[in-house]
Design a protein around this nucleic acid. Structure first.
Length: 508
RNA sequence: GGCCCUUUAGUCUAUCGGUUAGGACGCAAGAUUCUCAUUCUUGAAAGAGGGGUUCGAUUCCCCUAAGGGCUACCA
């Protein structure tokens, strides 16, 4: 990389809805790259499509990235010396630069309406507005200057198009893909400035803003690779090629079924969230789930996403944000799209759950308990969590694993009744009640007493303990039995055993 | 259709011409255990196909195929 230019990157989403997980990864890679280089991270909102603007999207994007720990130095909501950072507030700037292009002959005015273009496309196969066709269209290249002026004076709608010179090989040097060359003849004279809303298109606004905001590296999705040559031509047209940013086009995140890139519209259709945060579409009212609400830890999401398209080259997979900033290497990014593997995401969350302290998990779990009508203050929640945490991947799953600590079972798992509540068992449980009633109930004391009693009477250890477990828990699962009885106490344990004796009928 | 990008197990990937092709998720089996889960151990599983270049190709080149992207007054 040439000169000692300060590293400045931007994440430039369009506020057309929730940010999807692929966009999050793009933001993450930008962040990792700029932070490891001591650079700046800029948030620019590209709202030049007034038709597709969705209220709330901008706030959503900021909140989502904030949740994930991706921090900005400048931009919408953060301020900075290049403000404003919302493109809709930069109209005058774009107009000025469009005029420069018009003056130096790099762009021209076209009066063709969308309907007229539609007709051309219907009549001429593969119609493209370019050097071969613009001579027969209604534009400032084919019309008299006086006529153009007259039309504008009358208020005729027009667009500004870039004038692409044909038969020139254009090479973009991509950090990830190397040199990508295409011939200018396959490019069309893209609209730079729209008549519909008097706003620039992405292409123009993007180049002007990246230049003005002194962006050093453009790290974006592969869907932009085909228009990169156009962007290079625009830098040239403005005479900015010397300070043009470096480009890196990231491989796309693909649907797990292998049909296309992951998109916002996938919502929950694929069986997992595609959004970082829950999103309620303001128009349809549809709610799509988010990673946060599903119970993901932000560290897990960041770690998982970082490894979709990049890896450190070692066998280490659990990486904190600081690790990632230190190890990230944009040149090591893979080139091929990555299918989104939700199962692996779950595994990451499990790993991060295990690293959380019991107190931290308790703080996350208490709201869930309250939803179920349990008062956490009455229990030692961190201790209960310590008994079951290793068997869950999400905070919400803690409820399935701990509900019997708070609520006595009313039904019993049929397969466990069938296996463990056989003839003679009710009598053994009745005898167990008699034993328990006179014993000390701490786990360490009770365990040898009960085990010795089972052995002394010649009962089957597995069957007896599992019947005991079935009566107390409702099914045969959970942590060590005497740790459970220790938590729920003598009175409750005996109550549950007595209840089970009336309720459970052996199944043959 | 045109243009561009890509191609190692089901999935994410390591390998920068010479390896028993490594790791992880998932899957299967076993061990541990009063149960389920965790954990541990083991296992099955890959270089798209065809040509070159080379003493030697997963690795470099070409062709084909497949997948993906773009092809709007959307980003």
């Amino acid at each position: 990389m040439e000169q000692n230019r300060r590293v400045r990157v931007r994440f430039a989403p369009s506020p057309t809805g929730a940010l999807h997980i692929g966009g999050v990864r793009t933001a993450l890679y930008n962040y990792l790259f700029t932070k490891q280089n001591g650079g700046d991270m800029i948030l620019r909102i590209e709202d030049t499509d007034s038709q597709r603007f969705v209220p709330g999207a901008e706030e959503y994007i900021i909140e989502a990235l904030n949740w994930l720990g991706i921090k900005f130095d400048e931009g919408v909501g953060y301020g900075g010396k290049h403000a404003p950072y919302r493109q809709s507030e930069r109209k005058d700037i774009y107009r000025k630069y469009v005029d420069i292009l018009l003056e130096n002959g790099k762009a021209y005015i076209a009066f063709d309406t969308p309907e007229e273009l539609e007709r051309q496309r219907a009549v001429i196969p593969n119609f493209q507005y370019d050097a071969t066709t613009r001579g027969s269209m209604r534009n400032s290249l084919t019309m008299e200057e006086s006529e153009v002026e007259a039309l504008i004076a009358v208020g005729a709608k027009y667009v500004v198009r870039i004038k692409i010179e044909p038969e020139e090989d254009i090479t973009v040097n991509d950090i990830i893909r190397g040199k990508v060359t295409i011939n200018s003849s396959v490019l069309d004279d893209k609209v730079l400035y729209k008549s519909a809303d008097n706003l620039p298109t992405y292409h123009l606004a993007n180049i002007v803003d990246d230049h003005l905001m002194e962006i050093s590296h453009v790290i974006r999705g592969e869907e932009w690779l085909p228009s990169a040559p156009l962007h290079l031509l625009l830098y040239r047209a403005f005479g900015w090629e010397e300070t043009m940013p470096h480009f890196a086009h990231l491989p796309l995140l693909l649907k797990p079924d292998g049909n296309g890139k992951l998109s916002k519209r996938d919502g929950d259709r694929l069986g997992f969230p595609v959004f970082p945060l829950e999103w309620r579409d303001p128009k349809s009212g549809d709610v799509s789930s988010g990673y946060r609400e599903t119970g993901y830890l932000p560290e897990a999401v960041v770690n998982f996403l970082a490894l979709l398209g990049w890896n450190p080259g070692t066998e280490q997979e659990i990486l904190s944000m600081d690790d990632l900033i230190r190890l990230f290497d944009i040149e090591r990014c893979s080139k091929a799209g990555a299918k989104f593997d939700y199962e692996k995401g779950k595994w990451f969350n499990h790993k991060y759950m295990q690293e959380k302290s019991n107190d931290d998990l308790a703080a996350l779990f208490c709201p869930v308990l309250k939803e179920y009508g349990i008062d956490p203050a009455k229990y030692d929640i961190p201790y209960i969590i310590s008994l079951v945490k290793e068997r869950v991947s999400f905070v919400k799953e803690l409820w399935n694993q701990t509900s019997y600590f708070f609520i006595a079972p009313e039904t019993y798992a049929e397969k466990d009744i069938r296996k463990r509540w056989k003839d003679g068992m009710p009598e053994i449980i009745t005898a167990l009640i008699t034993l328990l009633e006179k014993e000390d109930f701490s786990a360490e004391k009770l365990e040898p007493i009960v085990l010795d009693w089972i052995a002394a009477n010649g009962y089957h250890l597995g069957n007896t303990m599992n019947a005991f477990r079935l009566a107390v828990v409702g099914e045969c699962r959970g942590p060590h039995m005497f740790l459970i009885t220790d938590v729920i106490g003598k009175e409750e344990t005996i109550k549950r055993l007595k209840y089970a004796l009336q309720e459970i009928k052996p199944i043959d």
